[in-house]
Amino acid sequence: MRLFRPLAAPIAALLLASPVAAASCGNTASGFNTWKAEFAQEAKRAGVGQRGLAALANTSYAKSTIAADRNQKSFKYSLDKFMKVRGTNTIIAQGRKRKAANANFYAALERSYGVPAGVLIAIHGMETGFGNFMGDSNVVSAIVTLTYDCRRSDFFRPHALGALKLVDRGSISPGTKGAKHGELGHTQFLPGNALKYGVDGNGDGRVDFYNQADALASTANYLRSKGWKPGQPYGPGTRNYTVLKEWNAATVYQQSLAIMGEQIDR
């Protein structure tokens, strides 16, 4: 005996073709908890597990992250001022010493990924002062808040999902600290990129972005995956220079990396 009738074909087709709406964004803290409940369903459909969903449920609206996102002045500086503010002369001097002290490590990375030491050291110095300050903001709350915020929801959504999956994997915890925009580890990976490009650089069987070897190997892997050409120059006008834009879209940042990298590698 037939217990139900199938949907009429046109109606069934419409239902199957209808996209699942993404959770609605907001510009104040007032709708954050309601949005989180909606986003949890989206995260579950994307494959986030119970640990990630629990981390999402425990996030707080990150006011300091929103303030930082509205006030990124340094990228509007001239190149000279940007380099002075970022302390590039110090990064170059320390970078040369770090390269000399760990020559085999950087040579191994270049053999594996084709990215020279100067570029990786410049990124490491620029992002966290060689690991001296990797941020004091909750990574998951920061990236989830930016996904909720209407300004750049679509950009941050895959990184929020990435952060929750990193929690599932045990690569980060719900309490992991990072930068104001949710960047994490020695070279400040956005979580979605960490999930996709992270590699085990020290051979201990896990990817830990707060371990220098893992972070630098992952950075080299990211650049190579974005089109870095081994053995080629990386100054303005080159193919490799355009790859630096994949790391940070600000022109002064790319210029600084190219200048510092070349001077460290001299």
Rank of each mutant, 00 (worst) to 15 (best):
G87S: 03
Y106G: 12
A142K: 00
K226W: 10
A13G: 02
Y61V: 05
A213W: 03
S74N: 10
N33I: 02
A22Y: 11
Y222R: 09
H181C: 05
R157N: 06
C25V: 07
M126T: 08
I11M: 09
K180R: 04
F155C: 05
A142Q: 02
T219S: 14
G201H: 12
P191S: 08
A21D: 06
T145F: 00
N221I: 10
L216R: 07
R2V: 13
L244V: 07
L216E: 03
T128A: 09
I123Q: 06
K81N: 04
A107K: 15
S173E: 11
F133E: 04
E127G: 10
H159N: 14
Y77P: 00
D149Y: 14
Y222C: 07
F105L: 13
R86W: 04
R96G: 13
A8K: 13
L164W: 02
S225K: 12
S137G: 00
L257N: 12
A55C: 12
G52M: 01
G175M: 09
R5G: 03
K196C: 03
P116I: 10
A40V: 05
F75N: 04
F189T: 10
D214L: 09
T147H: 04
G203R: 08
L190M: 15
L184H: 08
L161F: 05
Q212V: 15
T59P: 06
K196A: 15
L190C: 01
G95I: 14
F189M: 10
K73G: 06
V48T: 03
I172E: 08
A21G: 05
S141C: 08
T59H: 06
T145D: 01
D208A: 13
A68M: 07
L120H: 11
T187N: 13
K81V: 06
C150Y: 04
I121R: 09
E246Q: 12
L166E: 10
T187W: 11
P6M: 07
P158L: 06
E127N: 01
P174A: 11
R86V: 02
N104F: 12
V252N: 11
K165A: 01
Y241T: 08
G31K: 10
L161G: 02
S64H: 02
Y241L: 05
K97G: 11
F105D: 14
N240W: 01
P230A: 14
A258F: 11
N71C: 00
V167F: 05
V140Q: 06
V199L: 14
M126Y: 05
K76F: 02
Y197G: 11
A179S: 14
A8T: 04
K84V: 14
G185Y: 11
F155S: 04
D204M: 13
L184T: 14
F32D: 01
N193E: 07
L195K: 03
T34L: 03
I66H: 00
P116L: 09
A142E: 03
R96L: 10
